[in-house]
């Protein structure tokens, strides 16, 4: 679930309010948005990559709040980590053209003649 909106990083652009498909955030006049409906979060991680300044952190557990702190996320280098892995920057898309998934499909066809085959990737 979404757990952190860093008030120090956030520029109150309200992109997350608009882009969250589950309508989790609420804009606050004159301030940064709040996580108003945390329980509605579908743990899709997409607000993280839409945020232009990497101010959001989504914990992996979709059912329970973990209570992770901002300093722990900073220490682990996790703010913006999904965006970096994809190649998105400042809330803008990028990196699809260097996706190496073709190597996986190739490997799955050639390198593993035995063993169970994936049926639902």
């Amino acid at each position: 679930m979404i757990e952190l909106l860093s008030e120090t990083r956030c520029t109150a652009c309200n992109v997350c309010v608009k882009a969250c498909p589950a309508n989790v955030f609420e804009a606050v006049p004159g301030g940064v948005p709040v996580i108003a409906r945390q329980g509605d979060c579908q743990t899709c991680f997409l607000c993280e990559i839409y945020c232009p300044v990497d101010a959001l952190y989504v914990a992996v557990d979709p059912e329970h709040v973990t209570g992770i702190t901002e300093s722990a996320v900073v220490e682990a280098g996790l703010f913006g980590s999904y965006a970096r892995a994809l190649g998105w920057k400042k809330g803008r898309e990028g990196g699809a053209d260097s996706d190496p998934t073709h190597r996986l499909r190739q490997a799955s066809l050639t390198a593993m003649p035995t063993g169970p085959r994936s049926t639902a990737p």
Binding site: L86, S98, R103, A107, A111
Partner: peptide, 13 residues
Amino acid sequence: GAVPEALRRGQPN
């Protein structure tokens, strides 16, 4: 071989 790296980069989610 090349699979772990391709998995990490190709399927970051």
